[in-house]
Design a protein around this nucleic acid. Structure first.
Lengths: 365, 365
DNA sequence: CTGTTAGCGCATTCAA
DNA sequence: TTGAATGCGCTAACAG
């Protein structure tokens, strides 16, 4: 018996009609206690499990759209923060959010294929990753709209930021506040955003500036990368990173080596994840809130009006000055148009908990 | 036309058979370009949206169990951390994780009713919240197993910790390291865990110790509560909290008032969320990883073998000493059996980023 | 290439 | 209180 038992099976076994089985199943009353028991026993014996598809078809239950959110969810609080507005918007629009955490390219592809095979979602939300053109085409044929966040995918609406400008902004800020020997700690090259930030950084810092690639986006990875970097370039006085956690790792290593921050070396992060203000990390803020809100709206309109095209948007980044950089003397070049700068207050790093409670609160999308 | 159009509708409109419609729908090939276009136009015109229930029934698609995870997901990183192992376990077991963020009691009840009405999940995972007995009974009848995390619900398997002991542990640690005038900053009384921690704290700190109730579990709420507390009791030298974020808020307020930590006043958190080590917060660690793993296993076995009872478990808490408390002189009383203590290293708070890289890494479930 | 037909598993009349 | 019959929307043979 490879197949799942159905109400027919249990009806036969209990010596009743399927209607009766259905009744006890739904507690619709009007069933003799004896027969109910018999039916329940039969269900238990056969390990019956109702088929929800059949039920929903029969009951004409609401075809509540399910949005599959595919992303390396647990890698960083960036995704958590993006998902917050997303979740709320979707709930308000009466859609379900199904979370699919993917850690690597293989996992992602396998998942996408499965989603397509089983049509297990009505909308696809992909973060920081691409989709093969053939897969993209497949979803299109199936009528499953795709929306991309933090990744520019041709042919589908996406919200992105100018990562190239962001990378440059980091370098510029470091320079503006006095660093002369810059370096960058980046993450796995699989991420397009990282590669773009690297490029932007190199453009602004000069190609001589060393770039160390961390093996992941964790603090540990950042620390290891910083160690390697500092071994080769002990005189560095400004380290940018492509991610806040990496920056924290860099800072740990710097401290372990007795370098003072920001006096000896300045450090910047990227994202402005939650708690970075408490940690006093200078960083480049991504409009995570806006990311989530935009994505929710886009997928919503795509589901309600399948053929209506949605225009992609590009949001801007801003530098948040905190305790790991010094006061900047020059304004950042206006060249990086898409990136704006804000300096709430020159919060010198002192205690373990340091809050920049100024303009830090709301992001400026 | 209140009803959704079906393939019959579009078949009629396009002047073809339903099979053809189905073909273009699935890209199964073997359709003349002309007819395909006609069909697609009809679909567009009628705003056709395939009914997934029908499809899955017809195709006998895998009845992949969907686990609805109901919790105040975005309130704290506690849930994020619990969900990580949960997500991975479920994925490995071939189940989908559907996230339902609920912010309050009403939202929760409404959601639970909807889940039951629509049978939109095969398993229910509830965090930090109860379910009404009638609702519980309803899910039971529907054959939808429930598992509770961080909340002891009679009749359903649950993972919990001894919050009473946890509250006491906080007070004891504060006392052991020299505080004499204790206070507690707690959260909304709706949360059972908070109430229990309050009770435990009061028992160990004495009923004279003031308890301030914050209006939420955010840093802002913690800070506000601390302000009120300090206004009324300026000489406090030890403040425990029921949540890390609250503790961070307390610390902000303390610093704003020029009190030194831990010299003038010691502070403890609760949970040991991610980054608390970097922030140097002394706290009581919850076994979040184990929470998630256990829940995944429980729901799994309940789905595979519906009638098999699963025993609840209670995991233990441990105190993690970091920079916001002083070195303790006495061992914590052995009375709080369920709670163990560990002091990796007396990390004096110095820089904005301070890492206790010792035994901090893995939790001790 | 395309239409006809027969289920998929369940809820729900309607009679009995 | 119970059973037989019907249909939910779609896919998949099987004929044409």
């Amino acid at each position: 018996m490879a197949l799942e038992p159905t109400i027919y099976d249990i009806a036969r076994r209990a010596g009743v009609g399927i209607a009766t089985v259905s009744r006890v199943l739904n507690g619709s009353g009007g069933v003799a206690e004896a027969t109910r028991k018999a039916v329940q026993k039969a269900m238990a014996d056969l390990g019956y499990r109702p088929n929800r598809a059949a039920r929903r078809l029969a009951v004409r239950g609401p075809n509540r759209p399910r949005i599959a959110a595919v992303m390396p969810f647990f890698s960083t609080n960036f995704y958590f923060t993006v998902c917050r507005p997303l979740s709320q918007s979707l709930a308000a629009a009466d859609m379900d959010l199904v979370l699919y955490d993917v850690e690597n390219r293989e996992g992602k592809l396998r998942l996408l294929d499965r989603l397509a095979d089983e049509r297990s979602c009505e909308g696809l939300l992909i973060c920081s990753m691409g989709v093969g053109p053939e897969r993209q085409e497949r979803f299109a044929r199936l009528g499953i709209p795709i929306v991309c966040v933090d990744y520019p995918l041709e042919g589908v609406p996406s919200v992105t930021v100018d990562n190239l400008a962001g990378g440059a902004l980091a370098a510029e800020q470091l320079i503006a506040s006095g660093s002369e020997r810059l370096a960058l700690v980046t993450g796995p090259s699989a991420a397009l955003a990282f590669r773009q930030r690297e490029e932007g950084f190199a453009k602004a810092a000069g190609n001589a500036a060393p770039i160390a690639r961390a093996d992941g986006v964790s603090r540990e990875a950042g620390r290891a990368a910083a160690a390697a970097l500092l071994d080769g370039h002990p005189r560095l006085d400004g380290i940018a990173t492509v991610n806040d956690l990496l920056a924290l790792g860099v800072i740990e290593e710097l401290r372990a080596r007795g370098r003072r921050i920001p006096d000896d070396v300045q450090v910047t992060g990227f994202d402005d994840q939650p708690l970075m203000d408490a940690l006093g990390l200078s960083t480049i803020r991504q409009p995570m809130l806006a990311f989530g809100e935009w994505a929710a709206r886009a997928i919503q309109s795509l589901i309600e009006a399948p053929r209506t095209p949605v225009a992609s948007t590009r949001l801007s980044l801003s530098f948040i000055a905190r305790g790991t950089t010094r006061q900047s003397h020059h304004q950042a070049p206006a060249a990086t148009a898409a990136a704006t700068t804000s300096r709430p207050r020159a919060a010198k790093a002192k205690g373990p908990i340091k809050t920049g409670r100024s303009a830090d609160k709301k992001e400026r999308a």
